[in-house]
Amino acid sequence: MSSAGRRVRRAALVVLAGATLTSLLAVTAAAAAPFPASERAAATARTDVYIKDVAADVGVEPHLLEPLWISPDIKVCPTAVECATSQNPIVGVTNYVFVKLRNPGPYGSGVGSGVLRVYRTTPGGGATWPTHWTEIGASSVIAAPGVTTVTIPWTGVPGPGHFCLIARWISDSDPMTVEGPSIPINASHNNNIAWRNVDSVLLNPGAGPVVRPFAIGNTLRVPSRNEVTFAAAEPLRAIGGRVVVDLGPELFERWRAGGAVGAGIRPVGRTQVEIVEPTRAFLGNLELNPGERLRFSLLFSAEAESDGEIAFNVTQFGPDNNGERRADLGGVQYLISTGRR
C-alpha cells in the first residue's frame, strides 16, 4: 500500500473511533440518568391535597383514626351560602355539598389541579365501590396552598332524603395509593377520599316514630357474617327515647336462622326488636351473600324535649377485603334532638 493510502486508512480509523466513542458516551449518559427529564419533572411536581376523615386527621395514609365516616370536611346545606352545620338534604329542591380541600398534606407541595367528585348511597355500611354509589356532581378545581372550599350543586334529591356521601379528589399529580371495593380501606389509605354518614333526627315528643333507612352489605366474593352495634353517647331515657329496629322479613329470618344472636335488645313484633340497652346493644351472625346489600329501618321516638343533641351511632362490623375478620364496615351517626315543630 502506498504511503498516501496508509494516511487515508489511518484518517478513516480515527473518524470511526471518534464516532464510536461519542456513541458510547451518549449511551453511558442515558444509562446514568434515572429517568427521562419529563419524568423527573413530574416526580418533583408531586402534590398532596387531602380531605379530613376526622377532626384529628392531618393527611397521613393509612391511619387508624375512627370512625372514618364522620368527615368534618363534607357538609350539606340548603342554599349556595355555606351553613354553620351540615343538614339533611331537602327532597325535590337543589341542595349544595361543600367540601374542604386542604393543601398541602405530608406527601407533596404546590398548587393542586384536579377534579372533585361527590357520590351518595343508602346510609349504612358495606357499600361496594363503585357498584352502590351514584354521582351527585363534580367540579374542576385549582387548589392553592391553604383551604379551598368547593361547592357542588345537588339537584334531583330523591326521597327519603337520607344518604351516605363520599368525596374523591382526582388528580394526575396526586394519585390514589390503592382503591378497591371497600370504602373503609379506600378512605383510610387515600387522604383524597373522605366519607360522611351523619343524619339529624328531630323528634316531636309524644308523636309517632321518625323512620330512617340503614343498609348492611358484603363487599367480599364469599358469604360473610356480620354484626350491627348500637351505641348512644348518653342515655336516651332522659327524653323517654325509644329506638326500634325493623329488620323486615328477609333479614329477620336470617337473624333468626343464625341463632338470634344479640344483646341489649328485645323482640317487639314479627320483624322488630327494641334497643333496651343503647350503650351496648348489638345484633349478630347476620349472613350476607357476596356483593349483597340489604336495607332495614330504624324507628326513633321520644316523650320529652331535649336541651341538645344525643349522638346515636349504628355501625356494621364484619370481614373486610384486607383479611380483617371484624372491621368497621361503615355506619351512621344519628344526632337526635326533640322539640315542637
Rank of each mutant, 00 (worst) to 15 (best):
P181Q: 08
R196A: 06
P160F: 14
N289G: 11
V243T: 09
V244Y: 06
N322R: 09
V314A: 09
N289A: 14
R40G: 09
V60L: 13
R340K: 05
V147C: 08
P158N: 09
L21R: 08
G248Q: 10
V115T: 15
R237F: 02
I152K: 04
P223M: 09
G241W: 03
P106C: 07
L16N: 00
E82R: 10
A207I: 01
G92Y: 00
A43T: 04
P205G: 10
T279D: 14
G248T: 11
G330S: 03
F230E: 04
G323C: 11
H132I: 02
V273E: 01
R266T: 13
A231H: 14
A127K: 07
L101H: 04
G180L: 09
A4S: 13
S71E: 10
I152H: 03
V14T: 11
P235M: 15
N226M: 12
G318E: 04
N313S: 03
L299K: 05
I70T: 08
L329M: 11
A56H: 03
S337M: 07
G180T: 09
T338H: 12
R120L: 07
I74K: 06
R325T: 09
L298S: 08
A231D: 10
S2V: 03
P123F: 14
R102K: 13
V8P: 00
E277Y: 04
I265Q: 09
G137C: 11
R46H: 12
G241S: 06
V332L: 04
P104L: 06
S224W: 03
S3L: 10
T47F: 12
D320A: 13
